[in-house]
Computed example of a mutant assay.
Amino acid sequence: MHHLTTLNLPSAAAREAERQALACLTAAYLAGGGAVEQLKITDRKPEPTGSLRDRPRTTSRISGCSRRELKKRDDELAKRAQALANARMPGDRIRKKLGLGPVAFEQFIARHGIRLPAQRSTK
């Protein structure tokens, strides 16, 4: 690892030479009676190569739900949030009841146009 900055990165040939040197050192270590243990975290599929456009597309689903089901759940949650807001429940309590984080809750109420009750002053 002879590079000091990102502007002085090693070339592909230099990286290959370092790989070969490491392979020789590993072989000598193993020949001398050493043992190498491979950790489970490194047992993963290699990253796909090629253009992103050529890779197969996957549909991401949250817990096996379709977009319609997610939309339906979101609408039901919005009805519940609106009912709690109509009952004059403070926004932080509504957020906790719905199980949303602060940022997700702000985005949720903005997306559904839910008006929270005004904060009461503690004077």
Rank of each mutant, 00 (worst) to 15 (best):
M1Q: 08
M1Y: 04
H2V: 13
L7I: 04
L7P: 01
N8F: 05
L9V: 10
L9A: 13
P10G: 03
S11A: 11
A12M: 13
A12H: 12
A13Y: 04
A13V: 02
R15V: 10
R15H: 10
E16D: 13
E16R: 15
A17F: 02
E18R: 10
R19A: 06
R19S: 00
Q20E: 14
Q20N: 09
A21L: 10
A23S: 09
A23F: 10
L25C: 04
L25Q: 10
T26N: 12
T26V: 14
T26D: 10
A27Q: 13
A27V: 05
Y29L: 06
L30A: 08
G32A: 15
G33A: 10
G33Y: 03
A35M: 06
E37C: 01
E37V: 10
Q38L: 14
Q38H: 07
Q38C: 03
L39Q: 06
K40S: 14
K40A: 15
I41G: 00
I41D: 08
T42E: 11
R44D: 03
R44C: 10
R44G: 08
K45L: 12
P48G: 00
P48N: 05
P48E: 08
T49D: 01
T49I: 02
S51K: 08
L52T: 07
L52V: 02
L52I: 02
L52K: 12
R53W: 01
R53Y: 03
R57C: 09
T58E: 05
T59G: 00
T59A: 00
S60A: 01
S60L: 04
I62E: 08
I62D: 06
S63Q: 13
S63M: 08
C65R: 14
S66K: 07
S66F: 10
R68M: 06
R68Q: 13
R68A: 13
R68T: 14
R68I: 06
L70R: 13
K72E: 14
K72I: 09
R73M: 11
R73D: 03
D75C: 14
E76A: 15
K79S: 12
K79F: 04
R80E: 15
R80W: 05
A81W: 04
Q82S: 14
A83P: 00
A85W: 02
A85D: 01
A85K: 01
A87C: 02
A87D: 15
R88L: 14
M89A: 02
P90N: 08
P90L: 07
G91L: 01
R93I: 12
I94R: 01
K96T: 10
K97M: 12
K97S: 12
K97H: 09
L98Q: 05
G99L: 05
L100C: 03
L100P: 00
G101C: 07
G101W: 01
P102N: 15
V103M: 07
A104I: 03
A104Q: 14
E106N: 15
E106R: 15
Q107F: 07
I109A: 13
G113D: 06
I114Q: 06
L116Q: 07
L116R: 04
P117S: 03
P117R: 05
P117Y: 02
P117I: 06
A118M: 11
Q119W: 06
S121G: 12
T122H: 11
K123Y: 07
K123N: 09
